[in-house]
Amino acid sequence: MSIKAKSGGSWFTVLLVVAAIAVWAYDQKKALDHSPAKPSASRTEKADSPPKAKPAPPAAKGLEKIGGYEVYRNCTLVEARNNDGDSFMLKLPDGRQSEFRLYFVDTPESAFKSYKGGETNRQRIDEQAAEMGGITAQQAVQIGQDAKHFTLDLLASRPFDIYTRWDSPFHDNRFHAFVEVKQNGKSRWLDELLVEKGFVRIHTKGADLPDGITYAKQKAHLLDLERAAKKAEAGVWGK
Rank of each mutant, 00 (worst) to 15 (best):
E131Y: 11
R122K: 13
R96N: 14
R122W: 10
Q123N: 10
D106E: 13
L92V: 05
L90P: 01
K116I: 11
L92F: 07
Q123F: 12
D94G: 05
G117V: 09
K91P: 05
K91Q: 14
Q123E: 13
E131T: 14
P93I: 01
N83L: 03
G85F: 00
I125G: 03
G118C: 06
G133K: 08
Q128M: 12
R122A: 15
A111V: 09
D126E: 11
L90N: 04
G95R: 10
M132A: 06
K113R: 14
P93H: 01
P108Q: 09
S110L: 11
M89E: 09
K91E: 07
F112D: 13
S87A: 07
G85H: 00
K113P: 03
I125H: 01
Q123T: 09
S114W: 13
D106A: 09
K91D: 05
N83D: 08
T120C: 14
F100K: 04
K91H: 05
L102A: 07
F104K: 03
Y103I: 04
Q123V: 14
D106L: 04
G117H: 07
M89Q: 15
D94I: 04
Q97Y: 11
K91M: 08
Q97C: 10
E119H: 12
T120R: 09
K116N: 14
Q97T: 14
Y103V: 04
R96T: 06
Q97E: 15
K91R: 15
A129Y: 00
R96F: 13
R124G: 10
E131M: 12
Y115V: 08
Q97A: 10
S114Q: 12
S98E: 15
N83V: 04
Y103Q: 07
D126K: 14
G117I: 07
I125C: 06
I125P: 02
S110W: 04
R101A: 00
Q128E: 13
Q123D: 14
D126I: 09
K91L: 08
Q128S: 14
E109R: 01
D86T: 02
M132F: 06
Q128R: 07
D86C: 01
Y103W: 10
E127A: 11
P108H: 09
I125A: 01
E99N: 13
P108Y: 06
M132P: 02
Y103S: 05
F112H: 12
R96A: 07
L102R: 02
P93M: 00
E119I: 07
D126T: 10
G133T: 12
F104P: 00
P108G: 07
R122C: 08
Q128T: 08
G118S: 06
A111Q: 07
A129Q: 01
